[in-house]
Design a protein around this nucleic acid. Structure first.
Lengths: 121, 121
DNA sequence: TTGGAAATGATAATCATTTCCATTTTCATG
DNA sequence: CATGAAAATGGAAATGATTATCATTTCCAA
């Protein structure tokens, strides 16, 4: 956990929703921070490794990052403004477990995201 | 639906699981087909638009394609051999709908995939 | 047969992400 | 304070998937 990591956490806190590495870099630059793109990628990677931020993918494959609460959970993401809500899996956890068992799969993980327009957009 | 589209459907049928555009291109080349990478991308895009193939993303963001049955469904994907099983959403459909409603989201879509090791791997 | 539209594929362009590497910062220790 | 090694940094180049361009070829209806 070094200075750059903390800087990234700070931007992610301020932006709230998901943002790509390039966007986060631009925001910091706009604020007068001379941080390099390389360092942004490095810091984000390190935070993902430490499970402090979540990594997922936009439709076009670009990686987007978000500061993340503890534990396993899913997201409700607004296509308009990017704002996200963390939600508990609940039913989906059981669904994934049951299906995996049904087909004899082991060591399973799952992803589930809901996309839509929030009430403001 | 042109000749290239049909060719892509044919490879996808033979490979069974998910494959990237680059992999599909290599397979065709190996079989003596002189098809260009550009055409492979174009055909896949067109098939995705027509909802004949499914597009999802590997961990690294690379797009992978799979021939797909009708209607809305999810996948159980083997991390070992890439083999996939289409599964009905069931519980997850309701879960997504309920959560979206709870937070006032409209026009929602969702993704859900289960990854694991199949009985053979 | 033929004229134009659609399809094709090589090449170049784009764009996110990684790699390389030289420089700077940090910091414990003498 | 000096200093030297390790970690951090950032610019530039490399990489790799995907897309855009464009000249050429194939198709097909009239």
């Amino acid at each position: 956990m070094n200075k750059s990591d903390l800087k990234m956490i700070s931007v992610l806190e301020r932006t709230g929703g998901f943002a790509s590495a390039q966007e986060l870099h631009q925001i910091l630059r706009r604020e007068g921070d001379g941080i390099g793109l390389t360092t942004v990628y490095r810091a984000l990677q390190s935070l993902v490794d430490d499970k402090i931020v979540d990594l997922l993918r936009r439709d076009d494959g670009e990686a987007i990052y978000r500061l993340c609460g503890d534990g396993h959970h899913h997201h409700l993401v607004c296509k308009g403004c990017g704002q996200t809500v963390e939600i508990e899996g609940g039913a989906i956890e059981n669904w994934a477990k049951a299906k995996a068992e049904e087909f004899g799969f082991r060591e399973v993980a799952h992803t589930a995201e809901i996309f839509g327009l929030c009430s403001k957009c």
